[in-house]
């Protein structure tokens, strides 16, 4: 298996299993939040406060240290059904968001303790006994996923149920999803399935259906957890064109090196320049 297809192999696993992933098909999501509940139950994730946010049926508010799946609700004016149909109805878009388990994961790159690591399934997981809460992964993630838990200090996020998938089980969210909006499986299979689904929706006239995070050529090398969306990513709170920040890191180090040399030269000049 080539390294691009297997981040696990690229990280040094000798003979890793297939890359596992999530395909979240938002076109069949009914917004039941079974995924949120199942995730909390299985992973022992504390509550995120019991708030009314005034964001449609979303009172979770997005992914956080205490919400590893979060269902977004968008209310939109639906388009007219026929040319003379007048103003359309309201439509709901719903999407269960999750950590993308990026091929090039900024959180993992910048973690200074090695707490974040690449598993044999090519997912990205925090080791809670290593993380010292430095917080660097948090602004590094281009999707705003990983977060510090208050009162705990460490960083937390979706593990793709590392403890389940190692035993051949399905992650809790995918298991609980009643509509198969969340599908778990080998990533290459999921990608194929997603393309078929998109084609089918286009045939049915739902031309706004688009895949998000499925392209290994994108700024993060493709996501291990990708989506079928019915509107632009930013409508769901997703970045339209995310790029792993460490892509520019070699240029950054070169710039810093130049600045350091400039600095040293300025001091040398200040001392040898004149005698006073």
């Amino acid at each position: 298996m080539d390294n691009a297809a297997s981040p696990a192999a690229a990280s040094g696993y000798a003979d890793p299993p297939r890359r596992m992933g999530f395909f979240t098909d938002t076109s069949v999501c009914i917004g039941c939040k079974a995924c949120e509940v199942a995730c909390k139950e299985w992973n022992g994730v504390p509550d995120d406060g019991f708030n009314l946010l005034g964001m449609s049926y979303d009172n979770t508010g997005g992914l956080s240290a205490n919400s590893w799946r979060a269902v977004a609700f968008i209310e939109q004016p639906a388009p007219p059904k026929a040319p003379d149909g007048g103003a359309g109805d309201l439509r709901w878009l719903m999407m269960s968001n999750v950590c993308k388990h990026c091929t090039h994961a900024a959180c993992l790159d910048v973690c200074p303790t090695g707490a974040l690591f690449r598993t044999e399934f090519s997912t990205v997981v925090v080791q809670e006994d290593i993380c010292n809460g430095c917080g660097y992964c948090i602004p590094a993630c281009p999707y705003g996923v990983i977060d510090q838990r208050e009162g705990d200090g460490r960083a937390w996020k979706c593990t793709m149920c590392y403890d389940r998938i190692g035993d051949g089980l399905t992650p809790a969210c995918a298991k609980a999803c009643p509509t198969q909006s969340i599908q778990y499986g080998p990533l290459d299979e999921l990608r194929g399935r997603a393309e078929q689904r998109q084609a089918k929706l286009h045939e049915a006239g739902e031309t706004s259906a688009r895949l998000y995070g499925n392209d290994p050529g994108d700024g993060v090398g493709g996501d291990g957890a990708f989506f079928l969306l019915l509107d632009e990513p930013e409508v769901y709170g997703l970045p339209p064109d995310p790029v792993v920040t460490t892509r520019d890191l070699p240029k950054m180090w070169r710039t810093a090196g130049l600045a350091a040399l400039t600095m040293a030269a300025a001091v040398v000049a200040a001392f040898v320049g004149r005698s006073r």
Partner: peptide
């Protein structure tokens, strides 16, 4: 999405 941040500000 409801004016929420996309990336997370440093903590």
């Amino acid at each position: 999405y409801y004016g929420r941040p996309v990336v997370r500000p440093a903590v």
